[in-house]
Every structure is written in structure tokens, then in C-alpha cells.
Design a protein around this nucleic acid. Sequence first.
DNA 1: CAAAAAGAATAATCTAGATTAAGAGAATAG
DNA 2: CTATTCTCTTAATCTAGATTATTCTTTTTG
Lengths: 199, 199
Amino acid sequence: MEEMKEKAEKLFEGIKRHTELSPADEEKIFSRLTRKVIKRKQFYLHEGQIAKSAAFVVSGCLRSYSIDENGFEHILQFAPANWWITDMYSFISQKESYLNINAVEDSEVLLLTRVDQLDLFDEVPTLERYFRIITENSLVNSHRRLLDNMSLTAKERYGKFCQVYPTLINTLPQKQIAQFLGITPEFLSKVRNESLRKK
Amino acid sequence: MEEMKEKAEKLFEGIKRHTELSPADEEKIFSRLTRKVIKRKQFYLHEGQIAKSAAFVVSGCLRSYSIDENGFEHILQFAPANWWITDMYSFISQKESYLNINAVEDSEVLLLTRVDQLDLFDEVPTLERYFRIITENSLVNSHRRLLDNMSLTAKERYGKFCQVYPTLINTLPQKQIAQFLGITPEFLSKVRNESLRKK
DNA sequence: CAAAAAGAATAATCTAGATTAAGAGAATAG
DNA sequence: CTATTCTCTTAATCTAGATTATTCTTTTTG
């Protein structure tokens, strides 16, 4: 499987951007990864299931979202290439997830189970460091988004989204951008219209 | 300083709830901690400063919040006894913070600088594990709060707050609870009133 | 302990964003 | 290639929560 090694290379590069990693370490990690193809709209995780693994996106894009009691979807995260995605709550507790995760476009992922991840943390301490660092970064992002949601108007949040995810703007249906921003698609349409007229 | 050792004991207990820690490890960590008293309303961190350290709350309660361009405060976190608090963004990047942190009541904290923390991660790998785990948990909390803010009404969020932080309800000024929930104090007053009448 | 400052309640009015509805384009399946 | 199902827009109406203002109560502080 030379092909798969190539794909894991993207992950190793990411790790080495934060900490060191020997070829032997790479081998140990590689042996625990599983490749999976997830076609557009196919599910990686359904609410109520247990998130046995986390997914590293090699290509494509996944999204995680919850469905509230009125049936509305709220998007927690988009994961384009080179990002990890899972239901963190379910992944660390191995209890029933409250998130759904599916593919926004045809995607390819590398899976690492929680069990294997914990084993690897003992075998390759530098991997625990990597996950410690990316979790710290995720926390900073999550905090910023919380404060943005509390302090900015819908229009301002849309402006920020355009700056932060310029790639996603054109590939993603607007409905999903609205569900990420916490507004209705109708209102997003209005906001975009107003922004256009001003230019 | 026997007194201080007693206080660090609370921290060590917390660590041991997640991973093991030898007496030698405890000694190494202990030697890096600094004790600090922060009186009610006194600041631990001002927006624009660099968060050199993170604070473990021994007693009392701190809060972190941002101030938006209209001068409104938005509370990100309350840290009662046995919690850590810092501006995570500033702490990990050592760049200017965008949060303020001050004491809600007279408090006592143990400080650990980022430099010492990183040193300790090499000396005491089990400490890195501890921080990896509590950061994972914080991320889960932050995600849940994000989704709650998107899917629940103000009244529902207040109800959840009462369940999750029953202690804080009676000690905290309502203004601050409102700033945490992302609503105005006036509206919180209305919500509470309606809840009472129903009972 | 009095004066000043901060916190809380109530009510009237206002607005960002939701809801509902309806039509026009795209995309997808069959 | 056509029917059906999504996606997007526009517009009218509605509402959760904001804003402003007033009064009352509780803390702080000198």
C-alpha cells in the first residue's frame, strides 16, 4: 500500500510542524491508521453512535452538526483537508454521541481509534504532544467563536467567516454557512445582498 | 512554606484523578508554582498584556471576559476552586491577550508560567497528559456551550446554567450571569420572574 | 453610619433576526 | 432530457430579546 503511505505523509508533515517525529515513530503511527472513502452526503457518524475513532481528512471536506428538538441543524465544525474531526465528547468518553458527521463533498480520511490513540500516546510520547497542541488551538478557536457569537451581529460574523474560510465560501451551500453562523438561510441571503449593494 | 504545600495538594489530587504522579514528580511541579492572593475585583490579567502564566484557583473564583467595541462585557469562563484559568490564546502564543481576568471574590491562586509548564512537560510527561486531558474536556464544554447558544432560548440556557453551576447562582451578581449567558441583565430579570411565577 | 455607587425589578418601546410563503434557478436522479 | 428535488432570493409579518428609563434595594466606602 504505497499509495496510503503517501496520504499519511500529509499527517506526518502536520505533526512535524508542531513537534519532532522519527521514521520509527511514523511507522508506529502508520500501522494504526485505516483508510476510508466517504462519498458526498454519506455519514461518518450518526447521533447516538459511539465515536470509536477520529478522522484525519486527506481530501474533501466533512462537517459535524447537531440537530435540535425542532429539527434544525447547527454546524459545529467544517473539516477541510489536513484537519481532524470527530465528536470529541463521544471520542474521549466512549459514550453516545450527540453529533452527526457527514461528507460535504467526496472525501478520503484516515481513521485512528481512541484505543489505538491512547496506546500510541505511550509508545510515541511526541504524538501526545501533537494532540495536546492541536487541542489547545481548537480550544482557542472555539472560545473565539463563542465570543464572536455573543458580541458580533450576523453581518459581522459573515464577514469574518469570509476572511477565515475564503475557500469554503464558494464550495459550500449557503444553507450550511448559515447553519454555521447560527442564522437562517433567508437572513444570510439578505445580509449578502446588502453587502453586495454597498460595493 | 508548609502552608503552600497544603494548597498544591488540591492540584495534585486533581492531576491524580486523571493520571499517575510520583512524589518526585510532585516535588518538580511544586518548585515551579507561585502563590498569589487576588482580592475581589483585582485583576490577574488585563486585555493587551501577555498571559505569562495560567492560574490554578485554590479558593475563591475568577472570571475571564472580553469587552466589545460598544463597551459590553462578555464572560467566557468562571473559575471556582480547583479550576485553571488563563487567556489560552495569549498563554500558548505569548502574544497580546484579548481577555481580561479578575477576581469575583477574594481568591488565592497558584501560578505556572508557560515556560515552566513546557519545561515540566519534558521533565514530567505525566503532567503533559494531565493538561492534554483537561484541555480535551474544556473543548467539549466549549463546543456544548456553542451549540447551546445556537439552539436554546435564553430561558432554557438559564435553566441549564442553574443545573450546571448551582453554587454560582447565589454567589454571583445576576449581571454577570447574564453576561455569561449572552443576554442583558434586564432580560434575565424577566426570565427569572417568569420561572418563579410558574412554580 | 450616611452618602454614593452598584445591583435588581418593572415597564414601554424598538429592532435584529425568525418565520412563513411563494417563485425562480440549479442540480440530480431516474 | 424531463421530473423532482434542492437551493436561493425576495418580501411581508412576527417575536425574542435589546434599549431606555424609572424606581427601589443592596453594597461599599469614606
